[in-house]
């Protein structure tokens, strides 16, 4: 069974006093565990909306959205929140680290929010993840004391803290220079190869997109193409 299964899913933008504007139209596709997927498309094509739907941040207007066999479209806000906490990791274009908290504390947040771990256990786990992303020596630093690349690594560590089934990235390298973009990509690649981490990112970066195992292009709310890397390369 696929990890994510989308069937005839649509999303309309509902604004008061205006007819519903379709953003995503009747999408159907699946993502398997262990895949590294890049979602591409021009601005306003609906790719970010798609990512937020897959990540349980929003409800589809119509259709089915199964995540690990559970229909996210039927879940309450609290259920989705719990799902995001335990099974979903998010990395954004901006790091969104809490400025008053150290790297370690930022990574501890989702662990503490699960309210199943003691402070000590959470700290130990956060330290482990930060070391894994190469920031073992930056535990006590505040976000403002870190470089852009380091900040993004902390936010990746935070997304990975609860060992999510899927790591979602919304233009995770969109705000980074070439060197940092490369190093973040390599981190993703490594997580995917070594740990089998499922990764789904929205990106404008053609190079990153071409390196992903699979590329789904969204144009005007429909899937323009959905190809594995070997197929993309041969195009």
């Amino acid at each position: 069974m696929s990890l994510i299964s989308v069937r005839q899913m649509s999303k309309d933008l509902l604004l008061p006093g205006a007819p519903p504007a379709p953003i995503l139209k009747d999408l159907t596709f699946e993502i398997d565990a262990g895949e590294f997927v890049a979602i591409t498309g021009p601005s306003g094509s609906g790719k970010s909306t798609l990512l937020y739907l897959l990540g349980g941040l929003d409800h589809p207007t119509r259709g089915e959205l199964l995540f690990d066999g559970e229909d996210l479209s039927k879940m309450s806000d609290d259920e989705l929140t719990r799902k995001r906490n335990r099974q979903i990791g998010f990395v954004y274009q901006f790091h969104y680290l809490l400025p008053e908290f150290s790297s370690l504390e930022n990574v501890m947040m989702p662990l503490l929010a699960s309210e199943t771990m003691s402070h000590k256990e959470a700290a130990a786990r956060a330290k482990e993840v930060l070391e894994a992303v190469g920031l073992g020596d930056r535990l006590g630093h505040l976000p403002k004391q870190l470089s852009g690349g380091q900040q993004q690594r902390v936010s990746i560590a935070r997304a990975l803290a609860n060992q999510p089934r899927v790591l979602f990235g919304d233009e995770p390298t969109g705000n980074l220079d070439t060197a940092n973009t490369q190093s973040v990509y390599e981190l993703f690649r490594d997580l995917n190869r070594r740990l089998g981490q499922t990764i789904v990112i929205v990106t404008h970066d053609d190079e990153i997109a071409s390196k992903a195992d699979r590329q789904i292009q969204v144009v005007d709310g429909v899937i323009a193409f959905d190809k594995r890397r070997d197929e993309v390369a041969s195009r």
């Binding site: 929140t81 719990r82 995001r84 335990r86 998010f90 969104y96 809490l98 989702p110 929010a113 699960s114």
Partner: peptide, 16 residues
């Protein structure tokens, strides 16, 4: 509001 949203995405419920 940005930090609050972030907390919501990483698993803080409304009640929290």
């Amino acid at each position: 509001s940005r930090d609050i949203s972030l907390l919501r995405t990483i698993g803080f419920t409304r009640a929290r």
